[in-house]
């Protein structure tokens, strides 16, 4: 189990730094179509923000509750990704052929662009949950079992 950090410098800096890290993660995730970045890196940065809050404020802090609740979402990212593929099949095409997403008023290229955004969100959710989950597995076995079971 990780206890809160003693130093007030670390705590104050963490309070300031964690939102910045999260916003940067979202920026990297959604800017991946126009520059370097994408779902994988954005997910890792989002997960790292949660890990930072766990390392600084400890497992019990209210700030770490988001990270703890995220563990229930294991597999949601996969569901989003494969679900997009399924929706493409419903639209009458191949698995993961985004041009068959049935959204009226969009041409093929715009549909494929939208499909890339949605699948990147899936990858980001999956990677972020996995990163937080591995950190919790390494650091707090009893705590996490209690919070999930009880």
């Amino acid at each position: 189990m990780i206890r809160p950090h003693d130093s007030i410098i670390v705590q104050t800096l963490g309070r300031f730094l964690i939102p910045v890290v999260q916003i940067f993660g979202l920026y990297v995730l959604f800017f991946g179509q126009f520059g370097p970045g994408g779902g994988f890196v954005g997910g890792v940065i989002l997960g790292t923000g949660m890990i930072l809050s766990v390392l600084i404020f400890g497992h019990g802090a209210s700030r770490s509750q988001i990270a703890k609740n995220m563990l229930h979402g294991d597999g949601v990212g996969m569901l989003i990704y494969a679900g997009i593929g399924g929706v493409c099949m419903i639209g009458g095409g191949e698995f993961l052929n985004y041009a068959n997403l049935e959204i009226p008023g969009l041409e093929d290229a715009a549909r494929r662009s939208l499909g890339i955004v949605l699948t990147q969100i899936g990858v980001a959710v999956d990677v972020a949950v996995t990163a937080v989950s591995i950190v919790f597995s390494l650091s707090a076995e009893e705590i996490i079992e209690d919070s999930i079971n009880g």
């Binding site: 991946g32 179509q33 126009f34 520059g35 370097p36 994408g38 779902g39 990212g77 996969m78 990704y81 494969a82 593929g85 698995f95 993961l96 985004y98 290229a109 715009a110 494929r112 662009s113 499909g115 890339i116 699948t119 990147q120 899936g122 990858v123 999956d126 990677v127």
Partner: peptide, 23 residues
């Protein structure tokens, strides 16, 4: 795909199934 970053369009569109299995 209307995606200026070629790396992203190859990873998430042309080779989407590979990326899904990586996930």
């Amino acid at each position: 795909t209307h995606t200026p970053n070629v790396v992203t369009s190859v990873l998430m569109d042309y080779r989407s199934l590979d990326t899904m299995v990586e996930t």
